[in-house]
């Protein structure tokens, strides 16, 4: 839904690779998981535990709680408040998550 500007800061070779649902995605150092997600084709972050509807980042400032994702296995994490780092593993949160050894 979004693309990076090609201005003098965006050109700096300062990227890391994170994983979203197992797929590698290139992110800018200093940006958030949500802003990275918004550049991939399916930029939704979760399905709701109530009806299973898809949601995507909405407010980007931590007050809508719609960009909730599983970050390194921890659920209900606001992707817009999570900075990227190399190798970070992120998954879309599908409905109510399972509790179990991995949660």
């Amino acid at each position: 839904m979004f693309r990076l500007l090609e201005d003098d800061w965006g050109r700096v070779e300062s990227t890391v690779t994170i994983e979203i649902d197992g797929y590698p995605v290139i992110a800018q150092i200093g940006e958030t998981v949500a802003s990275t997600l918004l550049r991939v084709e399916a930029s939704w972050s979760r399905t709701t535990p109530v009806s299973g509807a898809r949601r995507a980042p909405y407010c980007m400032m931590g007050v809508c709680f719609d960009c909730l994702m599983l970050v390194e296995g921890e659920g209900l994490v606001r992707a817009c408040q999570t900075s990227v780092r190399a190798g970070l593993k992120v998954q879309r949160q599908m409905g109510p998550r399972k509790v179990g050894p991995s949660c």
Binding site: F2, R3, Q28, S35, L38, C59, M61
Partner: peptide, 17 residues
């Protein structure tokens, strides 16, 4: 999305629609 959200993306990482 909100306009505020889009403006945040403009500031970091510098994304536009």
């Amino acid at each position: 999305m909100t306009v505020g959200a889009a403006q945040i993306l403009l500031k970091n990482p510098g994304s536009v629609p």
